[in-house]
Design a protein around this nucleic acid. Structure first.
Lengths: 139, 139
DNA sequence: CCGTATCCCGGCGGATACTG
DNA sequence: CAGTATCCGCCGGGATACGG
């Protein structure tokens, strides 16, 4: 059995598992680096493609388009083309996409309340590791 | 300027951006494929390494360890070694990690309420695309 | 202005082998 | 049992060029 076949089988198992797990599907969707950023950018109202590119600073054209296609496919955002010259394309959240905002808010709330603890934990952990390195021979 | 330098600069900009954005940090943390699964697995109580490997079916040894180290570093989980033969290692959620559970529940709730809409939207979107493909010459 | 197609590199993550 | 080290395939995603 080749590595590719093994991979495919494992993928099958994983897919079969998440297939029955709504939470994982959602997390998979939100996991994409840019999804949450675009979602947040659109929270205030519709935006043109170029506006999005500016608002979500750092995103490449490819990823922005790809992300938007994904959101559109998932029914979270809608795409409106105005056939002028030059062409104009607006994106806006659908009701479904909008219904996600409270959840995003909840995430934001937890983050703002607790992310500092996480930061501190990291520093502590890293310091600990460094200490062990240099103190390895002294104990 | 080389491509690598451009990349580095863009990365800088992105990092600088998320550095001041708690929500993104949290999402970055939760984004890892296995984090939420491990978190969920530990929700019911402490588990041994091997138990986790079984519970989170499909995860490789490498990724499980890597995920656990990450959770430990973030102060979301703690690691307890019992020096017996064979050695025994338990992982459990910290209070901080536990505080994440309601948020996970909220995610689960949204997912269970709306993921069906997402599925339908996808089917519709895909069907639409297919239709355009085959009907391209008929209009 | 708003994309799509192509190339290509870096890194994620699985498989495997080895240690304590 | 619970890892660590290493190799390597795959694909995410940036850069670039081109079409409508």
């Amino acid at each position: 059995m080749t590595a590719a076949e093994r991979r495919a089988e494992a993928k099958q198992a994983y897919d079969a598992y998440i297939a029955q797990c709504p939470s994982r599907k959602l997390l998979d969707a939100l996991s994409d680096k840019w999804v949450s950023l675009v979602l947040t950018a659109l929270a205030n109202g519709p935006l043109r493609y170029s506006d999005l590119a500016r608002t979500v600073a750092g995103v490449s054209q490819k990823m922005l388009t790809q992300t938007l296609r994904g959101l559109e496919r998932d029914g979270l955002a809608s795409r409106t083309v105005t056939a002028s010259v030059p062409v104009r394309v607006d994106y806006r959240l659908t009701p479904l996409g909008t219904s996600l905002l409270p959840l995003m808010a909840a995430i934001k709330e937890w983050a703002e309340s607790h992310i500092e603890d996480v930061e501190l934990a990291r520093e502590h952990y890293d310091a600990q590791r460094d200490g062990e390195q240099s103190g390895r021979n002294s104990g």
